[in-house]
Amino acid sequence: MTLKRFSVVLLACLSLSACGGVDPNSPLGQRKAIFKQMLKTSEDLGGMLRGRLPFDGQKFADGAVKLDSLSREPWKHFPQVKEEDDTSARADVWQKQARFQELARALESATGELVVATRAQPLQAPALSAPMQKVEDSCKACHTEFRDH
């Protein structure tokens, strides 16, 4: 009987611990999902350029297009007023909107330039390093200024 009770209590604790997540349909949940996709895509592209993954020109070009598309999405999920949810975004996102939007446009521009660089066929990893670095630098600039790490 004790084992049965222990199992029920353990199951209840595990179920309750899963309830504390972010609502995937909330603005925070939406932008977190987009940022995770951006990170995964960017890591794959960087991995190809740094030799961690085999370089595949078509996969790189497809990834660049995906990253460019994703780079235009998270900004619409930042409401005008900071939500009460536990976010990694600093209050400056809402207090310095012009600067935040400037950095968002810089990222969009950098990912667009990366897509343009993938049109020079055949793709060569060394030719893509500088545009990819610009994308990574754009991400870092925004994180440095507007994200609590």
Rank of each mutant, 00 (worst) to 15 (best):
residue 67 L to A: 09
residue 45 L to K: 08
residue 78 F to P: 00
residue 113 E to P: 00
residue 52 R to Q: 13
residue 94 W to G: 00
residue 125 A to W: 03
residue 8 V to C: 07
residue 126 P to F: 14
residue 112 G to W: 03
residue 129 S to P: 00
residue 53 L to M: 11
residue 35 F to R: 07
residue 45 L to S: 09
residue 62 D to G: 10
residue 46 G to W: 05
residue 107 L to I: 01
residue 70 L to P: 05
residue 7 S to H: 00
residue 51 G to R: 05
residue 75 W to H: 04
residue 23 D to S: 12
residue 113 E to C: 07
residue 15 S to C: 15
residue 66 K to I: 12
residue 110 A to G: 12
residue 82 K to E: 10
residue 67 L to S: 10
residue 60 F to T: 04
residue 62 D to V: 11
residue 124 Q to C: 09
residue 71 S to H: 07
residue 70 L to E: 09
residue 78 F to C: 04
residue 68 D to K: 08
residue 95 Q to A: 09
residue 130 A to T: 08
residue 8 V to Y: 09
residue 64 A to T: 08
residue 2 T to A: 15
residue 43 E to P: 05
residue 46 G to A: 14
residue 15 S to R: 07
residue 74 P to C: 10
residue 50 R to V: 13
residue 33 A to F: 05
residue 37 Q to H: 03
residue 40 K to M: 08
residue 1 M to T: 13
residue 26 S to R: 08
residue 62 D to T: 04
residue 9 V to K: 11
residue 82 K to P: 02
residue 115 V to K: 10
residue 88 S to E: 13
residue 63 G to Q: 03
residue 53 L to F: 14
residue 76 K to M: 11
residue 58 Q to L: 07
residue 55 F to A: 12
residue 73 E to H: 10
residue 75 W to Y: 15
residue 91 A to H: 06
residue 10 L to Y: 02
residue 86 D to E: 14
residue 100 F to N: 06
residue 95 Q to R: 01
residue 111 T to I: 06
residue 11 L to V: 14
residue 74 P to G: 07
residue 69 S to K: 00
residue 108 E to P: 04
residue 18 A to R: 00
residue 125 A to D: 01
residue 82 K to D: 07
residue 35 F to P: 00
residue 68 D to F: 02
residue 56 D to W: 04
residue 27 P to L: 04
residue 6 F to W: 12
residue 132 M to Y: 07
residue 55 F to C: 10
residue 2 T to Y: 14
residue 78 F to E: 06
residue 10 L to C: 08
residue 50 R to I: 06
residue 84 E to N: 11
residue 70 L to T: 03
residue 17 S to K: 04
residue 26 S to N: 09
residue 42 S to K: 04
residue 5 R to I: 13
residue 126 P to T: 11
residue 128 L to P: 11
residue 101 Q to V: 05
residue 86 D to F: 06
residue 82 K to I: 02
residue 73 E to G: 05
residue 119 R to S: 13
residue 56 D to K: 07
residue 48 M to L: 14
residue 98 A to M: 03
residue 118 T to C: 15
residue 92 D to G: 11
residue 90 R to G: 06
residue 37 Q to E: 15
residue 4 K to Y: 12
residue 88 S to K: 12
residue 3 L to W: 13
residue 79 P to I: 01
residue 45 L to M: 15
residue 11 L to N: 11
residue 117 A to I: 05
residue 87 T to E: 01
residue 27 P to V: 10
residue 8 V to Q: 07
residue 40 K to Q: 12
residue 116 V to S: 14
residue 46 G to M: 09
residue 34 I to R: 08
residue 37 Q to I: 05
residue 24 P to T: 12
residue 80 Q to P: 07
residue 66 K to P: 04
residue 112 G to L: 02
residue 104 A to Q: 00
residue 16 L to G: 07
residue 19 C to G: 09
residue 38 M to R: 11
residue 66 K to R: 15
residue 125 A to I: 01
residue 61 A to W: 12
residue 6 F to C: 15
residue 72 R to S: 05
residue 128 L to Q: 13
residue 71 S to A: 12
residue 106 A to L: 02
residue 60 F to C: 08
residue 117 A to E: 08
residue 119 R to I: 10
residue 125 A to N: 02
residue 21 G to W: 01
residue 66 K to F: 08
residue 88 S to Y: 06
